[in-house]
């Protein structure tokens, strides 16, 4: 009885969650410039138009470059901090980790404004690199959260066995630790990549004359005739991020299986 009521609620809630997302492909293939029902007929024309907008291509490449660099850098910073936090007790650990994780609870506009002011004061030109600086800052806490659980589920006795068998610290890390946390590293890179690709506020403030994809989208939302093209682009982005997430989930499960832990589900 009670279970059925909850199940109905769960389905209704999922409908609410999916309501906006379902509209994306509907209007991307809709043969009409006005975004309203009833639908006008099927077309792939908006996708064809996508291939002809050069400013869009530039922003996609800019975003991909920023997201890739951010993923690598924030995973490296995440590795250092997660390893230190999972294995060592050190002075002022709470304060240091607190500062590093702070962007998780700081409104992004504060981070964006603070970075903008400092960069302008220092006379640094805005561009892809300044966006990367901001994105690494907000992605590192996510990388740490993922890598921390990877390091914590790692059996310490494996490393000790390696020391006892005469391996050095570095070779143990390379031969034992790294392969075991590799799924965590890949999953951290994928999450950081996805966050950076989608991030708008920091990019909006720090991008200068080279817009990222979300900043470009923002500028297009003002023109009603461009909306169907934006919908087509959104559909492609949706499919792409689904593929990325499935990959991240796959690697996470492999990681769980490799360390022999029980699967508790979900990446977050």
């Amino acid at each position: 009885m009670k279970g059925r009521g909850l199940a109905t609620y769960a389905v209704a809630y999922l409908l609410f969650l999916y309501a906006p997302v379902i509209l994306l492909p509907l209007f991307a293939f809709n043969d009409g410039t006005i975004i309203a029902f009833p639908l006008q007929g099927f077309t792939t024309g908006w996708f064809v138009q996508l291939t002809r907008i050069e400013a869009l291509h530039d922003s996609v490449f800019n975003s991909l470059w920023i997201a890739l660099t951010t993923a690598v850098l924030s995973t490296c910073f995440g590795l250092f901090a997660a390893r230190a936090s999972a294995r060592y007790r050190f002075p002022a650990k709470g304060g240091i980790m607190g500062l590093i994780m702070l962007p998780l609870v700081l409104p992004e506009i504060i981070v964006a404004v603070a970075l903008l002011v400092v960069l302008l004061q220092l006379g640094i030109d805005l561009g892809a690199w300044t966006v990367i600086l901001g994105h690494v800052l907000i992605c590192t806490p996510f990388s740490i959260a993922i890598l921390n659980s990877a390091f914590l589920s790692l059996d310490e006795s494996l490393e000790e066995a390696s020391y006892d068998l005469g391996e050095t610290k570095w070779s143990t890390f390379r031969l034992i630790t790294l392969p075991l946390v590799m799924p965590g590293i890949i999953s951290s890179m994928l999450i950081a990549f996805t966050i950076s690709l989608d991030e708008f506020i920091i990019a909006f403030f720090l991008t200068g004359n080279e817009p990222t994809l979300p900043v470009y989208l923002w500028s297009q939302l003002r023109f009603p005739t461009k909306i169907p093209i934006v919908m087509a682009l959104g559909t492609i982005m949706l499919v792409a991020s689904l593929l990325l997430l499935t990959a991240a989930e796959y690697f996470r499960r492999r990681g769980v299986a490799r360390t022999g832990a029980k699967d508790s589900g979900g990446f977050l």
Partner: peptide, 23 residues
Amino acid sequence: EGAQGLILVSPTFLYALLLLAAP
């Protein structure tokens, strides 16, 4: 142990100090 932990966390900490605390 304390020093090794500090050395290990220092790159990330310095980054947060320069690009978060200072701004």
